[in-house]
Computed example of a mutant assay.
Amino acid sequence: MNPALHPPASATAQSPARSGKNLRLALILLAIVVGSLLFVSVQPGLYRAFCEWTGLYDIDRAQEVAASAIPGRPITLQFDANSHDGALLFRPETTVLSAKTGDIMHVVYRVENTLDRTVVGQAVPSYGPQYAGNYVKKLDCFCFKQQTFAPREVREMPVVFFLDTRLPEEVNTVTLSYTFFEVPVESRK
């Protein structure tokens, strides 16, 4: 019998300590795989909850409202822009738009910083009639956060929204107005 062909029994048998380490490693790897699968399975729900909490989920709701059982009806939209302190020239590219409730609309506002210094501003929306604001569902708007304008910068900024099809029948015209206010240095985020 050739000893090179048959290793000693001690060389083929694993020590109990090594078997325990291998078992522990296998359990850790299994726990990582199971944990990863659980994370992946709850991630869509967490993402949806985050989007609803921040308002980002309105895009999906826009499709839902647009496809609702309430048919869209014609509406006239008016757009207005004001600057509180005059540092920013601010105007809508479109002043009047014919649309239907439930339709997703995209309008652009133009802003020009007239100063030789940086200006930080915040746009504040208002609606006419005021209660119509409850039916304006913004999907994207420059008014969501403060805007920083370099000296003499000109910028076009979009607003994407729809009017809920449940807008009261007596409302045939909705005005969407924004006023830009310069944000004082001490209150900037």
Rank of each mutant, 00 (worst) to 15 (best):
D140I: 06
Q63F: 15
Y178M: 00
I70N: 02
A62M: 13
S10W: 13
R48C: 00
L30N: 14
S36D: 12
L56H: 05
L25A: 03
D60G: 15
A66F: 02
K100E: 08
V108A: 11
P158A: 15
T12W: 11
Q130K: 07
V171C: 01
S19K: 13
R18F: 12
L38I: 10
A81M: 06
L46W: 11
V159K: 03
A87I: 02
V42T: 15
V34D: 10
A13H: 10
A26T: 10
Q122N: 04
T12Q: 15
D58L: 11
S187D: 07
Y135P: 02
R188M: 04
C143T: 01
P158R: 12
S126D: 08
P8R: 09
A31Q: 00
S36H: 08
R48W: 04
H6P: 03
D80E: 14
A31I: 08
K138Y: 00
G45H: 12
A69L: 13
F39R: 05
L77H: 04
Y135A: 03
N22M: 07
H106A: 06
L37M: 13
V124M: 12
F90P: 06
N113C: 06
V108E: 11
G45E: 09
M157I: 12
V108H: 08
C143F: 01
A4V: 06
V124P: 05
L97Q: 13
M105P: 00
L46T: 05
D103G: 05
R117E: 13
T118F: 10
A67K: 14
R48D: 10
A26S: 04
H106C: 07
A13M: 15
V42K: 14
F79G: 00
V183L: 01
F142N: 03
L5T: 09
T114K: 14
R48Y: 02
A17S: 11
T94K: 05
E52S: 04
P151I: 03
T76E: 14
K138V: 05
F161C: 06
D58F: 13
D103E: 15
V119L: 14
H106S: 11
S126E: 09
L176G: 00
G72F: 11
E170I: 03
P158L: 07
L46G: 09
T95W: 11
G121E: 05
L115C: 11
L77T: 05
T114H: 05
T175F: 12
R91Y: 09
A81S: 08
L97K: 09
F50E: 14
S83D: 06
C141M: 03
E112L: 05
A17M: 08
M105L: 15
R18I: 07
Q147W: 06
V160E: 12
I75M: 08
E52V: 02
I104E: 08
I32L: 15
A150G: 01
